[in-house]
Computed example of a mutant assay.
Amino acid sequence: MAQQKQLVLASASPRRAELLRQIGIHFSSQAADIDETPHPQESPERYVDRMALTKAHAIYEGLTTPQSETVVLGSDTAGVLDSSGELLLKPQDAADAVAMLQRLSNTVHTILTSVAFVDQEGEHLIQTTSRVWFRTLSAQEIDIYVASGEPLDKAGAYGIQGAAAAFVNRIEGSYSAIVGLPLGEVSEYLASKGLYAVRR
């Protein structure tokens, strides 16, 4: 009987882990220590693809368990301001988070999420695009939100699953992808690997 493959999440993100647990996926987690600096002239789409693949390969190549028994999932999320094409990554500090949220106020932005799977059969890449409409934010609520610390480790300086849900008028696309993983696409691929089945 063939050994069932094991899934490793190449991330320390509690949000991605919670999304996988939400649909009953069994996995272990291992953070990938990589350089996340964008390349000169790199498109946002290429950037998130490269980050997801680099994270997955970094963990796969360092596995202590047999590679033949393991699938590694790497993922990356970034925002893009529709009006300017600006890439919105994690803020460097509180002042950067404030400035980012000021630019997001009363605008539409795109969330790109890429998911890379690496195993002995090769690599598989998924990219999803969602759009988010922010209402007008006051300076006071931006300051209060940033002071909470919530936006400091999140692309675009906000977490839609947290207090910043109050900033959002509308979304188009996948809510779970905005949080960190497009669960529809992820579950479909994992099912093809025997790593996902709907629970009774």
Rank of each mutant, 00 (worst) to 15 (best):
S105P: 04
Q67N: 03
L53P: 00
S68M: 08
F117P: 07
I34S: 09
P14E: 11
A166Y: 02
D119Y: 02
T128M: 01
S13Y: 07
E123R: 01
E188P: 00
A12I: 03
V8K: 07
A164G: 07
D93Y: 06
F167C: 08
G149I: 03
T77V: 10
I23L: 12
S43C: 03
G194S: 05
S105R: 03
Q120V: 12
H26W: 00
E61V: 00
H109R: 02
V80Y: 00
V168F: 03
A163Y: 11
L88T: 11
L20Q: 06
T37K: 14
E185Q: 15
M1C: 10
F27G: 06
G85V: 05
Y60H: 15
K154G: 03
R200I: 04
Q4P: 13
A165F: 01
M100R: 05
D153Y: 00
Q92H: 13
R50P: 05
L152W: 02
S192Y: 02
Q127D: 00
I142M: 09
L181R: 04
L125R: 09
E42A: 14
K90H: 11
S68C: 08
A166C: 13
E86G: 02
D33F: 04
L20F: 04
E69N: 14
G62P: 02
G79W: 02
R50I: 13
E42T: 13
Q30S: 13
V48W: 02
A163G: 02
I34K: 09
G74Q: 10
V198Q: 11
L7Q: 09
H26V: 14
R16L: 04
V146N: 07
Q3A: 13
E188L: 12
G74I: 10
R131I: 01
T129C: 12
S130Q: 06
R170D: 07
P44R: 10
Q22G: 07
S187Y: 02
A155V: 01
D119E: 13
Q4D: 08
I142W: 04
R50S: 11
F117Q: 12
R199M: 05
Q6G: 04
I111K: 00
V71Q: 08
L125N: 03
P91Q: 13
H39Y: 13
A197Y: 02
D153V: 03
F117V: 13
R170H: 14
A116K: 03
G74E: 10
G79N: 06
